[in-house]
């Protein structure tokens, strides 16, 4: 009995040191106890979930590409694109759900192109997706003439702004459902296991008979699709589609994924880690707002936290390399 407890303690300790993001969240939660703010109200905590939902959904998709030893920096552009497309189509008189489906398909198409370039043509993932993101930003500006567009059909707003039972925001529910689906995909299907395998070692996976090209390609398509879903939700939440959203989203989300412990080397990580990693950044913003810290200082803190956590990540790997 004693030993199992000790083993359990040791194991959980190792899990915590491995999960720097968990420590960061706990530190923030404890720190907030000492200040008299509205942080610990159900309203605020639900709000954190609601604000995080859009980025979290993007992160779930990006996680797939990062596990496959890639990454996707075009998600910011895709997010804007799908919002703009769906609003424009609805304003043009199309049925809401059809418009949403077309918008999501646009995201899938971009993901397909990313996948073609990265997997089929073997280009460097992060630079090519950065280029695609830039291209889509231009498309967004062209579509909207760089003005924000509002949706004239009020039904559209209800997608993201409702509350289940008057308490839990819809957005949080979408996030949880999508998160569970992707979790199940990674954990319980052969697709998920193949993805980890090819992320760990591409050539070994290839010679083991895994269809590496199709598997990795699908990861990019899913990433684009989920970014598009998030974009529809964002535009419904704000009832606006604009080309200016999402300038920093892509890098922020990818950072969040890495902060959570999904490594760019590929083959490790998961949905829960990404959720926690991005939550660090979201919670940090909320805490600083609650404490009334000036926005520019917030930006400094956010930058420092990103650098610090990625620094730790690299440093840990360097130590490991030197040990071996």
């Amino acid at each position: 009995m004693q030993t199992t407890f000790a083993a359990f303690g040791k194991r959980s300790l190792r899990a915590v040191t491995k999960q720097k993001a968990v420590i960061a969240i706990l530190a923030m939660l404890i720190l907030m106890l000492f200040f008299k703010t509205n942080f610990y109200t159900s309203y605020n905590l639900l709000n954190v979930l609601k604000d995080a939902a859009v980025n979290e959904i993007i992160a779930f998709g990006v996680t797939l590409t990062v596990i496959a030893a890639g990454c996707d920096l075009s998600v910011g552009g895709v997010m804007c694109l799908s919002g703009i497309v769906s609003i424009k189509l609805i304003n043009g008189g199309m049925d809401i759900w059809l418009a949403v489906i077309i918008a999501v398909l646009c995201g899938a198409l971009v993901g397909f192109i990313n996948g073609f370039l990265v997997v089929q043509q073997k280009t460097e993932a992060f630079i090519i997706t950065l280029g695609i993101g830039m291209l889509i930003k231009g498309v967004n500006q062209q579509l909207t003439d760089a003005h924000p567009v509002s949706c004239t059909n009020m039904e559209y707003m209800k997608i993201a702004n409702g509350k289940i039972g008057g308490v839990v925001p819809n957005l949080a529910l979408y996030m949880i459902v999508i998160g569970l689906l992707v979790y199940a995909l990674l954990r319980f299907t052969s697709y998920g296991r193949n993805l980890y395998a090819l992320g760990g070692d591409y050539d070994v996976a290839k010679y083991s008979g895994i269809n590496v090209v199709a598997t990795k390609w699908t990861a990019f398509v899913l990433s684009g699709t989920m970014a598009a879903v998030a974009g529809v939700l964002l535009s419904s939440k704000l009832n606006t589609g604009s080309s200016i959203y999402g300038d920093d989203t892509a890098l922020m989300v990818n950072c969040g994924v890495v902060v959570g412990g999904t490594s760019f080397a590929g083959g490790v990580g998961g949905i829960l880690q990404s959720f926690i990693g991005l939550m660090v950044l979201q919670l940090l913003g909320n805490c600083m707002n609650m404490l009334g810290i000036a926005p520019y200082i917030q930006q400094v803190c956010q930058g420092v936290v990103i650098v610090a956590i990625i620094w730790l990540d690299c440093y840990g790997r360097k130590r490991k390399r030197e040990d071996v």
Binding site: F126, L251, N254, C255, V258, Q299, V300, Q302, G303, V304, V305, I306, V307, I310, W311, C314
Partner: peptide
């Protein structure tokens, strides 16, 4: 890429 992105924000 990510470290310099963070530094840029700072």
């Amino acid at each position: 890429l990510f470290i310099t992105f963070g530094m840029s924000a700072v």
